[in-house]
């Protein structure tokens, strides 16, 4: 982290707003937190006495556990609210729920919601810092950061890499945040998937579009598979999981179309046999579990930097 650079944002709402420099600052900060997970006692006092609320309107195991662990390792006091509990299911308006939480004076609120823009709405109304942990199909900034962190650890760089993202592009927040992040850092991004899952004008986000795996995988350094949301979209967007796998499922044989040292990523949870075969998911090229491990360090970095901006840029070293 360069000395002159200070984190100034109150919130992390998305990657779209960030500069390349800010992204690098987050990634560099995360490097320093990796080591904490390697200690016998995996805890630092950095956020002692600070309160973080995890407000999850949508079910999530992975992201929420990752945030919780990051908060605990930073010694923050954290509190969980889920969509199925309390007022959230009793018809209270979003704004009222948020105001009630605010009355408890949290320093940071981590929010996951099924509707795009909810973190932005809260950031306009709340004094607390807001971290977007996924808003509908809009953004999932910490996922993109941990993906980039993982790519950088394996490839040593982001710039100039060819990254291919395959799957349900239309309904994926992961893909949008990744497109913003990877293109800002100079990667060449291709998105691929069934035409029925490709959103209008996605090329305007600065990516190439492919509708078949051969084109998409050619020369790829990184292959990122997306979860097919069987529960929601199967009926209208593709006829069967078998057809999906036939057209876009990643098998060892198909992976040969990418570069020899290409890595395979997946934000999880995976549908084995739908978008990815077990042989690939568990194979040598898979870095899927690294992503999960890195997620904690990246989220520690996010929590730490946002908190430091709240303390007026005071240095709080891990």
């Amino acid at each position: 982290m360069s000395d002159e650079m200070v984190w100034r944002r109150k919130d992390l709402l998305g990657i779209a707003d960030l500069s390349a420099q800010e992204i690098l600052m987050l990634l560099d900060t995360a490097e320093s937190f990796v080591e904490v997970a390697e200690r016998p006692i995996k805890k630092v006092p950095t956020l002692r006495g600070r309160t973080v609320i995890n407000l999850f309107f949508e079910n999530s195991t992975r992201t929420r556990s990752s945030f919780e662990l990051a908060e605990k390792r930073l010694s923050a006091d954290s509190l969980n609210f889920s969509g199925s509990s309390s007022a959230l299911s009793k018809g209270e308006s979003l704004i009222d729920t948020a105001r009630n939480l605010e009355a408890m004076s949290p320093d940071l609120v981590v929010i996951r919601h099924q509707h795009p823009g909810v973190p932005h709405l809260l950031s306009k109304r709340l004094e607390s810092g807001i971290i977007n942990a996924g808003d509908g199909a809009h953004e999932h900034p910490t996922q993109a950061l941990l993906d980039a962190f993982t790519i950088r650890r394996h490839k040593g760089r982001i710039e100039g890499l060819k990254v291919t993202i395959i799957g349900d592009i239309e309904h994926s927040r992961v893909v949008r945040s990744n497109i913003h992040l990877l293109t800002k850092l100079g990667a060449e991004v291709t998105v691929a998937g069934p035409r029925t899952m490709m959103p209008e004008a996605i090329d305007k986000m600065g990516v190439a579009v492919a509708y078949d795996l051969a084109t998409a995988l050619h020369d790829a350094d990184v292959v990122m598979m997306l979860r097919v949301q069987l529960e929601r979209h199967q009926k209208t967007l593709f006829p069967s999981t078998k057809e999906y796998f036939d057209l876009f499922g990643l098998t060892p044989r198909r992976l040969q179309m990418a570069k020899d040292d290409a890595i395979v990523m997946h934000p999880g949870p995976m549908n084995r046999g739908v978008e990815i075969s077990s042989a690939v998911a568990d194979g040598q090229r898979s870095v899927i579990l690294d992503q999960v491990a890195n997620g904690v360090a990246v989220r520690m970095a996010v929590l730490y930097l946002l908190m430091s901006s709240r303390s007026g840029g005071t240095e709080v070293r891990p």
């Binding site: 779209a16 795009p116 823009g117 808003d135 509908g136 199909a137 809009h138 953004e139 239309e170 927040r173 949008r176 959103p199 209008e200 004008a201 996605i202 305007k204 986000m205």
Partner: peptide
């Protein structure tokens, strides 16, 4: 409206 901005924002579009 379904187009570049609905795609960027992840909001379902009306074509």
């Amino acid at each position: 409206h379904e187009g570049e901005w609905s795609t960027r924002l992840g909001l379902p579009g009306i074509p």
